[in-house]
Amino acid sequence: MATYDLEEQEQLAEIKVWWKQHGSLLINVITAASLTVIAWQGWSWYQRNQSVQASMVYNVLQKAVQDKDSQRIKAASGELLEKFGSTTYASLGALTAAKTMIDSTDAKTAKVQLLWVVEHGKDEFRDLARLRLAAVLLDEKAYDLALKQLDGSASPGFEARFADTRGDVLSAQGKKAEALGAYQTALTKLDEADKSGKGKNSALGRQGQAAAVYRELLQQKLDSLGGSKQ
């Protein structure tokens, strides 16, 4: 068995002392780091798996929409919201189902779908759901509830639409002056979005002629109330 010289013995002694003082801490740090990596990898796998499964259910929903099968639409949408609510497909599914329900005059179900996106969706999905829900409530003459959906800020690409819809609700309430102000705001926001380039990919989907058509529609609303663009 090899023997250690004095310097080596001193180094070993120092290592033993250091390990006695810090060994447990080092093991805990390494263990915690390993667990963090494992947890992150597990979470990433879970999210990918959720997204894949959600996409399959969403495909079923789309097929049901094509077939105009309301029961399968409700079932697929319900599964997306219940099992895959953290994925983008849940909001997409709810919006898709709501549109179909509105077209089939099932406003009650449509409102449930839209309200879920309002409460759980993110950014543009949430804003689009607020707009569509406000439109449904306007048709039902639930004006105060419609305006409530339009309260607060909206993403830049939705600002004109929010002001426009607010004008529709106010006009239906007979509040002419307030409606005029809302339509004028919509025109202003539309111009600002177009100048800044934010309107190119906005909720309106405006490009070229479509932008002019929408602007003309807003102007007609103003004219019908005796107003004009400021």
Rank of each mutant, 00 (worst) to 15 (best):
M1E: 12
A2M: 04
Y4M: 12
D5Y: 02
L6T: 11
E7T: 06
A13P: 00
K16I: 10
V17H: 15
V17D: 15
W19L: 14
K20Y: 11
K20I: 05
Q21P: 00
H22R: 13
A33Y: 07
A39W: 15
Q41M: 10
R48F: 12
N49G: 02
S51V: 11
V52Y: 08
Q53H: 06
S55Q: 12
V57E: 08
V57D: 06
N59W: 06
L61I: 04
L61Y: 06
Q62S: 10
V65F: 07
D67F: 09
A75L: 14
S77F: 00
G78F: 09
G78K: 07
E79S: 14
L81A: 13
L81I: 15
K83V: 03
Y89F: 14
L92Q: 13
A97G: 08
T100S: 15
M101F: 15
M101C: 02
S104T: 11
T105V: 09
A107Y: 15
L114V: 05
L115R: 14
W116H: 07
V118E: 12
F125G: 08
F125W: 10
R126T: 10
L128V: 15
R130L: 06
L131I: 08
A134S: 12
L138P: 01
A142S: 14
D151F: 08
E159V: 14
A160L: 01
A160N: 04
T165Y: 08
G167P: 01
S171V: 01
K175P: 04
K175C: 02
A177Y: 04
A177W: 03
E178G: 05
A179E: 04
L180C: 05
G181W: 01
G181I: 03
Y183H: 04
Q184A: 11
Q184R: 14
L187Q: 07
L187S: 08
K189N: 08
A193F: 00
K195D: 08
S196T: 12
K198P: 03
K198A: 10
G199V: 02
G199D: 03
N201S: 09
L204S: 10
G205R: 01
G208I: 04
Q209M: 06
A210K: 09
A210G: 06
A210W: 11
R215H: 10
E216R: 13
E216C: 00
L217M: 13
Q219Y: 00
L222V: 02
S224L: 09
S224T: 05
G227T: 02
S228M: 07
